[in-house]
Design a protein around this nucleic acid. Structure first.
Lengths: 176, 176
DNA sequence: GCTGACTATCTCGACATCGAGATATTGGAG
DNA sequence: CTCCAATATCTCGATGTCGAGATAGTCAGC
């Protein structure tokens, strides 16, 4: 720490320990990729239980919530085509069909005939689906904000900015 | 952008678009949590295909690689107890048993009797397992470094530092 | 108006993981 | 010693997702 700027100080965490183990075992490998992507993955996994608990209180799992929230934030009439949904959610078309079946059976969405394209069977939130999605989303955002409490507002903002730059570059890349 | 410092500028990305949609639909909700955790999740998902392709070239999936790499970085004799493994990997004990069975059948690990505790059946890399893990790890780190190319070294370092602070706080929290 | 390439969605068998319970073992209290 | 609560791992039925293929519909060009 003495020869480092404070801004570069890396805090003790699970991925940091991993990095030191690799340094011992394979000192010639550059693990900077892991320092970012490995931590992003670890944080995602670690935050999961708290967030899933929110959805479970509303009778949803993460995948189902993802569908409902995508429809909700699309704005009235809260309707999207399955293709838009599975691309946005980064899942397979088959996986989406299953989620939609569950949500339809639960009365949270309904399938409405497309106006123009007969191949398409758009999906739309029901009133209950809209209410459920909004309630779960509000609680989710409250929990997620709490998970970031240890960071100052400035750190959160800087972190979001750096992540958005990385995300932008990943989206732009051919297919990495 | 005019009224903002450049350092706070948020780049165009998928989660940024989501944030603007929520701003339209539910303007009173604070979505800062999503700006960080949502992006961490999105980046993890977006980086996945490129990384999985590496493992696939070595005949592994991500879960199997995670087991092998955990054993490898533990150092000689590359042996850990199943409990250490599933806790480190953040999966269930049952899920680990299945991964171990596959890896054992593939000849990449072997189960050796514990010296002291008869309840425990530690797992150890075979020579082939060690070689496979190292080769896949080296390639993985090369790909991950490339995925970060769009960021300067300083940005990567700052990002890693902020993520480590967040990860540390999540690990410290009771159970969030 | 046909035709063929393309698109949108669904079907379905394979499979990895979960998670509650079963089995075997340990170690400390009495 | 003997018990029993705690521990380590495995078993196994349920389930969510993948992904290749099937089905139905569209549209541009002839």
């Amino acid at each position: 720490m003495t020869s480092r700027q404070f801004a570069d100080a890396v805090f003790e965490d699970h991925v940091g320990l991993r990095g030191r183990q690799w340094e011992q075992e394979l000192p010639d490998v550059d693990t900077r990729g892991m320092a970012v992507l490995g931590r992003a993955r670890w944080i995602t996994l670690a935050a999961r239980p708290a967030i899933e608990a929110v959805f479970a209180r509303h009778g949803l799992d993460t995948g189902e919530f993802d569908v409902l929230s995508t429809l909700l934030r699309a704005g009235a009439p809260y309707r999207l085509r399955p293709t838009e949904l599975y691309r946005s959610l980064m899942i397979s078309s088959g996986g989406l069909t299953d989620r939609l079946s569950r949500l339809e059976k639960a009365g949270l969405i309904e399938r409405v005939a497309a106006e123009k394209d007969g191949r398409s069977l758009p999906v739309q939130l029901t009133g209950e689906g809209r209410a459920r999605a909004e309630a779960a989303f509000r609680e989710d955002m409250a929990i997620e904000a709490r998970l970031l409490d240890a960071l100052t507002e400035e750190e959160q903002s800087r972190l979001a900015q750096l992540l958005s730059k990385l995300a932008g570059s990943l989206a732009a890349a051919p297919q990495n």
